[in-house]
Computed example of a mutant assay.
Amino acid sequence: MRRLFPVTDLTPADDEGEWSLDALAEAYAYPEQDGPWLRANMVSTLDGAAQHDGRSQPISSESDMRIFGTLRALADAVVVGAETVRLEGYRPARAREAFAARRAAAGQGPAPAIAVVSGSLDLDFTLPLFVAPLVPTLVLTGAGAPAARIEAARKAGAEVVVAGEGSRVDPARAVRELADRGLRRLLTEGGPRMLGQFVAAGVLDEMCLTLSPMLTAGDAQRIAGGRSVAVPERFTLMSILEEAGFLFTRYRRI
C-alpha cells in the first residue's frame, strides 16, 4: 500500500508494502473533539455500484477489509440499517488484541457496540447479534414502534433507544442519543438507504470511500440512496491510499 495524498517526506520505497494495523489506526484516527463524529465506510465500483448480487464483499479486497476492521476497532459504535443486518448476516463486533491497548487508552470498551436502525423492528432477535454480543447491541427505533417488537428486543438483551416519532428514526436524534450514552466515535457501514438519510440530515462528518477497480453494469444501488439534498454538501479530501488499483479515500465535511 502507498500513500498518494497528502504528499509526505517518505519516499515510495518507505511507504510501500503492507501497512501495520497501528499505522492504519494512526491514519484513520478520529479527531479530538467533545461532540459526536459520524464517519461512513463504503465501497463503490468504477461505475457506481455499492454491491454485487446484493453484497459488498465481491467488490472489496483484502486491504479494504483490513481498513474496514481498523475503522470498526476505532469506533465506539457501528451504526447499521436493518436491511443490511439481514442481507450481510451481521454478527457482534469482536474484541481484537491488536487494538486492546489503544481502546483502553481512549476509555473504550473491548469492542464497539452495534447500533441497528429499524423503525419496524422487523428483526430476528434470536441471532447472535442480539443474544450473544460482547457489548450489548442497541436498537434505534421510533416512539411508535410495535410494543411487542420492543419487548422482544429487550428480552433478547438489546437496549432499545427511541430516536424518532412514529415509526421513523430521525438521523440527527439518533446521533445525539448515542452521544448521550458516551458513544461519540460513530461509524456507519450502510446500507445505502440509511447513509442517504444521514446525508440528507446533514449529520455525516466524514466519508471513507474505497473505489474498487471493477465494472459491474446492472442496476445495483449507489452508496447512498433516498431523496436528493436541496444543495449538494461539499467535502474536502483528507487522504488517499492505493493498493492493487484500489483507492482508499477519506473526505471530511467542510
Rank of each mutant, 00 (worst) to 15 (best):
E32P: 06
E32M: 08
D34S: 13
G35K: 12
G35I: 13
P36Y: 07
P36R: 06
W37F: 14
W37K: 03
R39D: 01
A40K: 02
N41S: 14
V43R: 03
S44W: 02
S44N: 13
S44K: 05
L46Q: 10
D47K: 06
D47L: 10
G48I: 07
G48A: 11
A49H: 01
A49K: 02
Q51P: 06
Q51F: 08
H52L: 15
D53P: 05
G54H: 09
S56G: 09
S56N: 07
Q57E: 15
P58S: 05
S61C: 14
S61D: 10
S63I: 13
M65I: 15
R66G: 04
I67D: 02
F68S: 04
G69L: 11
G69P: 01
T70G: 07
L71S: 01
L71F: 05
L71Q: 00
R72V: 10
L74H: 03
L74C: 06
A75T: 07
D76W: 05
D76C: 12
A77T: 09
A77H: 04
V79P: 00
V79Q: 00
V79A: 04
V80G: 02
G81P: 04
V85D: 00
L87E: 14
E88D: 11
A93M: 14
A93H: 05
R102I: 02
R103H: 04
A104Q: 12
A105T: 08
A106Q: 14
A106S: 12
A106Y: 08
A106M: 09
G107H: 09
G107Q: 09
G109C: 07
G109F: 03
G109M: 05
A115D: 03
G119E: 10
S120I: 11
L121K: 06
D122L: 10
L123H: 03
